[in-house]
């Protein structure tokens, strides 16, 4: 093996290893390796810092950078899990799922599937935690996914029941058990208001936040997370809207998607035509259908 590769593997293993509770580099790693002797084998000490201390600068920098990015992406998750548990969640998730992308944008891409395998971070409000995670990840994707060209007159003229309608890549649809979008908006507007520099104000905000999360009642909702004029929006959907969009996204023809949407629907048959016309007007005006 190349010496360069060998060195980089060893340094990366040290840097990406979790810090101690005091945010220092552990003397010994989880696998028993001594960081003190490991650092000494490849890092020169100087007159002020030992090999260990020099390596520790990078170890700390790695975690601080990742934590700050992750926290910025999942403020709602932090609120529903609680700040202390969230610290552990970040540490364990990023240890199990280190970044595999050149951009930190994708840091949370594996969070939902990871959480499903880590019930200790879901309990006692499993569904709320999962819902918030899904919403916040959908927001990240809706923010910068592609916006494809709209259907032109020729495309529109040829649409029939067999047509496959393509939706904008930025559109995400979610089925949720809690109205987490209301919670997230409330949390955001609270953290963006008031005097951030005052300790009293921040303690009061924290109390409000905890109460708000505790008071949140379950509600079965359907949500579109989408983009308009480059801002991200949350749009509540009806069950039929959701089923229709879901069918279109999975490649069903227009005719079949409509059929799927009305399975067990409470919308009376005589109203369905008008209902379909309305939602398609709305979605089309939002620019959701693309070539």
């Amino acid at each position: 093996m190349s010496e360069l590769l060998e060195l980089q593997r060893r340094v990366a293993a040290a840097i990406m290893h979790p810090l101690t509770r005091n945010e220092t580099m552990p003397r010994r790693r989880r696998d028993g390796v001594s960081n003190t002797s490991e650092a000494a084998t490849y890092i020169k000490p100087n007159d002020r810092l030992s090999s260990f201390e020099r390596l520790e600068i990078y170890n700390r920098q790695y975690w601080f950078r990742l934590y700050s990015c992750f926290e910025e992406d999942f403020p709602g998750l932090k609120a529903v899990v609680g700040a202390q548990k969230f610290e552990l969640l970040m540490r364990d998730y990023l240890t199990d799922c280190p970044s595999q992308s050149f951009t930190l944008r994708n840091l949370g891409s594996r969070l939902e599937s990871w959480l499903l395998e880590h019930p200790e971070y879901l309990d006692p409000r499993r569904q709320l935690v999962l819902d918030m995670c899904r919403l916040e990840w959908a927001h990240i994707e809706a923010f910068d996914e592609a916006e494809n060209p709209l259907l032109d007159a020729d495309d529109l003229a040829t649409i029939d029941e067999h047509s496959l309608l393509h939706l904008q890549p930025y559109l995400r649809i979610l089925e949720l058990q809690y109205p987490v979008e209301d919670l997230l908006i409330a949390l955001r507007s609270e953290s963006g208001s008031g005097d951030a520099s005052s300790n009293n104000a921040s303690a009061a905000r924290k109390t409000r936040r905890v109460r708000r999360v505790a008071a949140l009642e379950p509600e079965h909702i359907f949500l579109a997370v989408h983009r308009h004029e480059n801002s991200v929006y949350y749009k509540r959907l009806d069950r039929e809207d959701y089923l229709l969009l879901k069918a279109l996204l999975s490649g069903a023809s227009l005719g079949n998607a409509i059929e799927t949407a009305f399975v067990d629907s409470v919308i009376p048959e005589e109203d369905r035509g008008r209902w379909l016309q309305q939602i398609f007007t709305s979605w089309s005006a939002l620019g959701w259908f693309t070539r």
Binding site: I15, M16, Q61, Y62, S99, Q100, L104
Partner: peptide, 8 residues
């Protein structure tokens, strides 16, 4: 290294 990014 090995497809894992430190972002540093």
């Amino acid at each position: 290294v090995d497809g894992r990014y430190t972002h540093d």
